[in-house]
Design a protein around this nucleic acid. Structure first.
Lengths: 192, 192
DNA sequence: TAATTACATAAACAAATGTTGATGTATTAT
DNA sequence: ATAATACATCAACATTTGTTTATGTAATTA
């Protein structure tokens, strides 16, 4: 991969995060790069391909992550905790890509859009199968599987927004601990 | 408010939800309305004002809801359960507006954007104050207040997406019950 | 009856948009 | 030395965009 391509990738990441994909023009990107508009087309094929590259890159990281977790020997709860860790790690390491993953995928077009949706469903299905196993083994409460998966992922999906892109008061370990505490024990204080 | 204005409001709601605000052109809206482009300007001032109207409308409903809850006599946990109910109700009654509230606010401009952000912070601050009170009274577990507020709201924010805009298997009561179970007790099965 | 209001159409515009073509230079690989 | 590669510039393009102006009709209100 070219050097300039990489620089462009990171620059456009920041700008698209800040302004949104649709609102980011090629001329905006050119200005940010300090080059001519047409110059950009030496690095990428089109504006669409830029979005595709970003989105499928970060998607790959999630897919690899979840696959590794699923073929491990951990039980369902520990596997879910690994998923939490996956999100925490990526939220801290790749907050911008993560933001675009949740906010800008709808700007994909045609078969790329279809592909993305199927990838996302694939991921959610994998998480769902862990939760299903947890319910089967009675280590998780019985509830609607779809809702459970949704609630679990909801707690993680916007993490980047609140805790990687703003000043956060705690380290990764403590963040992870408190999220796990919430997901598995809930808010209620049962100690007294 | 004019009759046509109302029709236009609902039509554009659907289209903006489907395509996104930036991607929805005035010509798209005109076609959907079965009228000329310029005709639209008999109903609204500008494309921006359309977005502003939608967003601040639904925002008002949330603000009124949370204010009502906060001046009630309920304890912190019951107040939070009322907030859950508020989200469930609005997710079912106004799923489109809710979707735009979370997905399209960044397309606001200038002082309207600033106003919106301050309104959202106001709302989150109100929720946070309920949670703070819950922690003070020891009915909620002690954890980072900001994170707790974030986790609580995350469970609710995208409800419309999964449970109002898709076929859902249960009624409002059961949906609410399961969400509350998760938020306050967590996923872990402690019964055995 | 007169005036205001709601709604419609057609034509046009100025700005912004993604993209291309022609051309050139400097560096690297063969 | 030659060819390929990476990178740059300038001008231009065809569309698409939100919006306006001018004009007209039908219904409601004063």
């Amino acid at each position: 991969m070219n050097e300039k391509h990489q620089i462009f990738y990171e620059t456009s990441l920041k700008l698209v995060y800040k302004k949104g994909f649709k609102a980011t023009t090629m001329r905006d990107l050119a200005e940010e790069m300090g080059c001519d508009v047409s110059n950009i087309y030496n690095y990428i094929d089109s504006k669409q391909s830029l979005l595709e590259e970003i989105l499928f890159n970060i998607n790959d990281l999630f897919q690899e992550g979840i696959d590794l977790i699923r073929c491990s020997d951990y039980g369902p709860i520990d596997q879910l905790k690994q998923v939490v860790r996956l999100y925490v790690n990526l939220s801290i390491e790749r907050p911008l890509e993560l933001s675009l993953l949740t906010n800008e995928w709808r700007n994909l077009k045609g078969e790329k859009l279809e592909l993305f949706i199927s990838e996302r469903e694939k991921f959610e299905h994998k998480v769902k199968s862990i939760i299903r196993e947890g319910m089967r083994k009675k280590v998780l409460i019985e509830m609607d599987l779809k809702l459970a998966t949704f609630l679990f992922l909801s707690a993680l999906r916007l993490l980047f927004d609140k805790y990687a892109l703003t000043e956060n008061p705690f380290n990764k370990i403590e963040l992870e601990r408190q999220i796990n505490r919430y997901i598995f024990q809930g808010f209620t204080n049962n100690s007294k």
